[in-house]
Simulated scan of single mutants.
Amino acid sequence: MATETDLATAVATELVKQVPIKEAYHDGLSPAVRETGSALTDFVKTIRLALAPLQFTAALQDRYVKFLDRSVRGIPEERRVLPAPQILGPVLEAIKYEPEETLITEMYNELLSKAFDRQAADGVHPAYAPLIKQLSMDEAIILKSIYAKLDDHYLYQYTLDYNRETNRFSNPKVELDELPRNELRNPNKIQIYMEHLEKLGLASIQQFKNQEPIGSPGAFQTGSRSFARYQLTAFGLEFMKAARPPTT
């Protein structure tokens, strides 16, 4: 019996057979590109026939067909192109691990939908699908929240105590944290989530103005106050443009 990886490969292979990869990204509407719309329109029918000889569960086949149909459906036929295999393959591999109707599944769907669209395909980087796979649900929600507030960031303000004898700052205390928590499953793990998002190169908490010393006028400094905000990196911004599902 074939493996689930074989199924994803078979789906990608069938798409390649319908429209040659080398033709999909040519400038202008070559005959092959003009035919792409009808080929993808008939995808739901043809893919079932192509996969029929493979011994996969009907539920898994149905999920791939439904997912791909949803990705293509909203794109005008004249703009439909074949996604690059390094984008299509990882997406098909990843969705079998995700429940349906979640934010992460929607991100995969939006990413593949843009890859099918000749006007948006250039904005889909091959690294995006593997990045989505590394996100927890809460991290996806945090990225969505930060992206929704690009022009007016969520602020993060904290203080540190200052020890004159050791010349060190310690004991951080958060004074202000505006990041929404109502949708998060584990809001107490925000710091861990942000550390992970920073390692992925997507988002971080960045200081945006100088620290303020804390202490009475004329007295020794007893601490400092830092002013920071949640923000996407330049790469994280492009990632969210490609993967963030449109608001409804």
Rank of each mutant, 00 (worst) to 15 (best):
L184D: 12
D152R: 07
N167Q: 14
A228D: 09
K189W: 10
M194A: 05
H125G: 04
G201S: 02
S136L: 10
N186K: 13
L179D: 03
A203Y: 00
Y147A: 14
S136T: 15
Q221W: 00
D122A: 11
P172D: 13
G123R: 04
Q157D: 06
R181E: 13
P217R: 09
M194D: 03
E212A: 10
L150G: 11
V174Q: 13
S226V: 09
N167K: 15
Q211D: 09
S226P: 02
Y230F: 15
L135C: 05
E178L: 10
A219T: 12
Y193E: 13
L184R: 12
Y162E: 07
V124K: 03
D138A: 05
A127N: 05
K144F: 01
L176F: 06
G223R: 08
S224G: 10
K144Y: 05
Y162R: 09
S216N: 11
L155W: 02
Q191D: 15
S216H: 11
K173Q: 10
Y154D: 07
R168F: 06
L197A: 07
S226K: 08
K149Y: 00
Y156V: 06
F227Y: 15
I146D: 00
Q206L: 07
G201P: 02
E198L: 00
Y156Q: 04
G223L: 08
A203W: 00
I214C: 02
A219N: 12
S204I: 00
V174Y: 12
I214V: 12
H196P: 02
I142T: 04
A127I: 04
T166G: 03
S224R: 13
I146L: 03
E165P: 02
F227C: 05
H196N: 15
K133F: 07
K144I: 00
E175D: 15
S170K: 07
L202H: 04
I205M: 06
P180R: 09
A121P: 00
L197T: 03
G223P: 08
I214Y: 02
V174K: 12
L143K: 02
H125T: 09
P217F: 11
R185S: 15
Q206I: 07
L232W: 07
D138I: 06
F220D: 14
Q206A: 08
Q206D: 10
Q157V: 14
Q231L: 12
